[in-house]
């Protein structure tokens, strides 16, 4: 190993609190000067994680999240200079984080934060207009809807989606709002439209319908799958909501963005 590589290895270890080889590499890790580098590394990482999980901060407070981010940093430091992307493994970490044991929904809320970032940063695509749907029943049944690249779907056995929606800043829920949370399984659709990420809580059949769309099923198959979950499922009502949210991408033939993505 070259001198530069030896130095960088020792310096990087010392930044993470393992200063064993610092002396041999020509620097002292216990000086105020070194502490500036160490603080910068720690602060940049923790600030990025906190910025990427604003709903978690709202739920647990800055101090709790700061301490948690510190613990996360020790096992999972940033792997890329794109700090908006930092924390992909944070939800799994929270699931096993002892001090979060009395908030079993926290990991799922963190999963939704991460999906929000993915939706926010996803590729652009022209949305499909509802007017582009075939008018005849047969054509409609055979239509395969393409999800917009920003669409993210999730389903949890807890009301994590409602908790996330109520607490995502700048939302400021009242005690009444929080008291109305029903403890049930539910899902969430995230989709970017008009430059903003929007969300809709999904029932089990809603989620089934969209998952089948994502798998490339024609509309008839999507509706059948949803109806198996709930015979009263209203496909027309869901579709109206989904088109309003710009959930579907225009077909390549009519999209001006073809070839750019």
């Amino acid at each position: 190993m070259s001198d530069l590589a030896k130095f960088q290895e020792a310096f990087a270890l010392a930044l993470r609190g393992q200063a064993g080889s610092a002396c041999n590499a020509g620097f002292a890790a216990d000086t105020p000067g070194f502490a500036v580098y160490k603080n910068n590394f720690t602060k940049a990482s923790i600030d990025a994680l906190v910025a990427n999980y604003p709903t978690i901060e709202r739920l647990v407070g800055s101090e709790w999240l700061g301490a948690c981010a510190h613990a996360f940093l020790e096992v999972c430091p940033p792997s890329s200079p794109i700090l908006a992307d930092y924390g992909a493994g944070f939800a799994d970490f929270l699931d096993g984080f002892e001090p979060a044991a009395d908030m079993p929904y926290l990991g799922s809320v963190a999963r939704l934060e991460r999906l929000w970032f993915e939706a926010h940063a996803a590729a652009d695509a022209e949305p499909m207009s509802v007017a582009a749907l075939p008018r005849d029943g047969e054509g409609l049944a055979a239509t395969r809807l393409r999800l917009h690249p920003s669409v993210r779907l999730a389903f949890f056995d807890q009301p994590a989606a409602t908790i996330w929606r109520l607490n995502r800043p700048p939302a400021d829920p009242s005690d009444d709002d929080l008291a109305k949370i029903v403890w049930r399984a539910e899902g969430l659709l995230l989709v970017r439209s008009g430059g903003e990420v929007r969300s809709r809580v999904l029932s089990a059949p809603d989620h089934r319908f969209l998952s089948l769309c994502a798998a490339g099923e024609p509309l008839e198959g999507c509706a059948t799958g949803a109806l198996e979950r709930d015979p009263t499922f209203d496909v027309a009502a869901l579709l109206a909501d989904l088109f309003e949210l710009e959930t579907f991408a225009a077909s390549p033939a009519t999209s001006p963005l073809t070839g750019d993505n």
Binding site: D3, F7, F11, A12, R16, N40, K43, P78, S80, L83
Partner: peptide, 10 residues
């Protein structure tokens, strides 16, 4: 690992 700072060297 990205260290979030601009680090020195010899």
């Amino acid at each position: 690992v990205y260290h979030g700072d601009l680090l020195p060297f010899s």
